[in-house]
Amino acid sequence: MEEVVRLGISAVLLAGLYSVMAYGLGLIYGVLRIVNLAHAGVIMAAAYVTWLLHSRLGIDPYLAIPVILVVFFIFGVLLYKGVVRFLPRGAAGGVQSLLLLFGIWLVMRNGAYLLFSGNDRAIRTEYSTHSISIFGTSVAQSRVVVFVIAVLTLAALHLFLTRTYTGKAIRAVAQNPDSGTIVGVNVERFYALTFGIGTSLGGLAGLLLATIFAFNPTSGAVELLKSFVVVVLGGLGSVVGIALGALVLAFAESYAILILPSYLTAAVSFVLLVVVLVLRPGGLFGQRVLA
């Protein structure tokens, strides 16, 4: 029973991180209808930038959040303006953007490999071994901090998308770009903005990951798939959907340890992805995502 509670708590904490990385992917897909495979590269790159800032300049990973957000926002906007803009969108055009962004991911992976070698890196701060007690089980402090940051980010994002003009314009463009143009929304500008926000969320996810797990140039691949699982589970409708999707994935993964041999738990998210795509292509809670 204690084991069940412990796994439950760690699942909830993990779900926070999952929803941040999934939201980055989901936002870009929801608005531009492009699956950003470079998301994996962004997560990985952000982990390395955080590591560099910490080991070279001594900046605390959590204080580096604004830097990461700005850097990867700019990266995302440049990526959009530089290449993605020229690609066809939508279900039929997905092939080209998929392949191109996949190519960008490969280049980023190779770049990281050349710069930092293929060895695992981890960020060690003086508080990374601290733990706190929740419901009688002790939990690593950094996981709790990551969870809190994730929840705050999602809340801020929700407010941004529902309460500000810019956020509403993004949602309008997602629903119907042509009507957006008619009422005076500069669609291209909001596409660039969305791509930037999505990418900076990927960057934030990378930073948060780096404070908990070790990483190497191939990191991000698993996170990309998990993000996709969450998006598929939760649909593209809302922040709440994404959060619920993240919870489902995190619980499935955590409790799989109880029934599956440990080496197979890594396959849980992949199997879940295929099963959910097949059984509920519309997502468990959200709108249909099947084009």
């Binding site: 279900a91 998929l98 598929v232 080496y263 992949f270 097949v278 292509p281």
Partner: peptide, 24 residues
């Protein structure tokens, strides 16, 4: 089952399938 999905969904599902197969 997965081929009934169009667009990027099939592509992403194949990543999952091949990674799961590799692990197993």
């Amino acid at each position: 089952p997965t081929l009934r999905l169009r667009g990027p969904y099939f592509a992403i599902a194949t990543i999952g399938v091949s990674e799961a197969t590799r692990l197993i």
